[in-house]
Amino acid sequence: MEKLIPTLIDGLNLGSVYALVALGYTMVYGIAKMLNFAHGDVIMVGAYTLFVCITTLHLPLWLTFIIAILVCSVLGFIVEKLAYKPLRGSSPLAVLITAIGVSYLLQNLALLFANTKYGMDKQFFSSFLNLGSLKIGNVTISGVDFLIWITTAVIMVGMMLFIKKTKTGRAMLAVSEDKGAAQLMGVNVNKTISITFIIGSALAAIASILFAAKYQFVESTMGSLFGIKAFAAAVFGGIGSIPGAVIGGVIIGIIEAFSTAFLPGSVNAASDGFAFVILIIMLVLKPTGLLGKQTTEKV
C-alpha cells in the first residue's frame, strides 16, 4: 500500500512527458495527415543538446533550455521541408517509410556524435535542476515533479486556446479538414504545416528538458520506444485530439508505472508491453480512441 502514491507520482511524471510528445504526434497527424515516426527522436536530439550545453559547454541553464527548444524546432522544420514536403500527395506508405528512415538517420547521427565525442552512447546528467521537495506525511513530491505536471497542464490548455482563438489555429483546423478548401480561403498550406512541425518539435524539446531533469540520462535510441509509447498515447486518447493526447499520455504513463511496481519480478520486465495490451483492448472497444471524433462525411 505504501507504494501506491509514489507509483502514482511516477506514472504522472512519465505520463506527462509522454503527453507532451503525444501532442506533437497528434497535431502533425491531425493537420498534415501523416505519422511522423521520427517525432520521438526529436526528444533524443533535445536531450543530447541539453547534455552538450550543460556538461560540456557549461552554459547557464536558461540559455540551455532556449538552445534545446531552438535546435528541435529548426530540426522539425528542416525534416519536414527536406523529407516530407516533396512527398506531399504521394502514398501515405511512402511518407511513413520516409519517417522511419528519418528516425534511424537521427539515431545513427546521434550515435556517431556520442561515440566520437564521449566514447559512449549512454550519458548521465548530474542533477541540474534542483527545486527542493514537498513532504506530505511520508510521501515526498519533488519540485521537478510539480514542474512536469504544471508545464504539461499549461501547455495543453495553451494549445487548445491557440487552436481555437488564433488565426493560425483556425488555419490549422481548416487545413486539417480540407487542404484545398483551406487554400481557397487564402490559407498558405505549406506554411501552416511548417508551423505545426515547429510547434510539435518545440513541445518535444520541452519534453526532453523535463525528462532529462527527472531521469537524468540520454542515449541515441531513447526516442524510439518513447515515440512509440507517445504515439500509443495519442491513439489511446483519440488521434487528432489535444486533450485526448494528454489524457492518453497520462493513462499510458500510469499503467506503465503500476505494472513496473506491482507485477511480480519475472513479468515485470514486460511492463513496456503492458501499456500496449491496454491500448489494444481500448481500440477494440472504441476504435476512435477516448476522445476521438467519429467523423461522418456529409456530401
Binding site: K167, R170, E177
Partner: peptide, 26 residues
C-alpha cells in the same frame, strides 16, 4: 477571386461563424 467549390466543401466540424471567419482569412 473567391471560389464556392463544387460540393460546397464547408468546414463541417467548425461552426457556421468559424467558417465565415475563415472566409475573411486574408
Amino acid at each position: 477571386i473567391a471560389q464556392v467549390p463544387e460540393g460546397r466543401r464547408i468546414f463541417s466540424q467548425l461552426s457556421v461563424f468559424e467558417n465565415l471567419k475563415l472566409g475573411a482569412y486574408t
